[in-house]
Amino acid sequence: MKVLIVDDSKAMRMIVQRTLKQAGFANIQAIEAANGVEALQMIADQSPDIVLSDWNMPEMKGIELLTTLRSNGKHVPLGFITSESSPEIREQATAAGAAFVIIKPFTPAAFEQALKPLMA
């Protein structure tokens, strides 16, 4: 399974990869993008099975990435991993079609709970 991790922080992309393994998702191929614009290109080129995206990024925010994907007819599951913990962010994400929202700081258990239904 190919997972695209989108975050402007290289450190956070590494932590997300590590947490995926800690959550028991050993057989994944992780690919990375630093913002929504890069992510759109990688989704077009590499067709990931799942996208894990930060919310707040330069160039293109995570929510713009999701709305652009859906308006282009791309239905790859996308979940947010963000420090934006307010209810309106969660509502906005859900309304736009996000598969889940994981709040930073997170645990492997949060990843397992959010991602297991999508990995089946």
């Binding site: 402007d8 922080s9 450190a11 707040n56 934006e84 307010s86 309106e88 709040i103």
Partner: peptide, 25 residues
């Protein structure tokens, strides 16, 4: 890595405020 610490703490402070607002990079 240091900036991401500020981002995570700031994001959770914003959430604790409970009011609609934006968080900078």
């Amino acid at each position: 890595a240091f900036g991401e610490i500020a981002n995570m703490i700031g994001g959770n402070v914003k959430g604790a405020f409970g009011e609609e607002s934006d968080l900078s990079l």
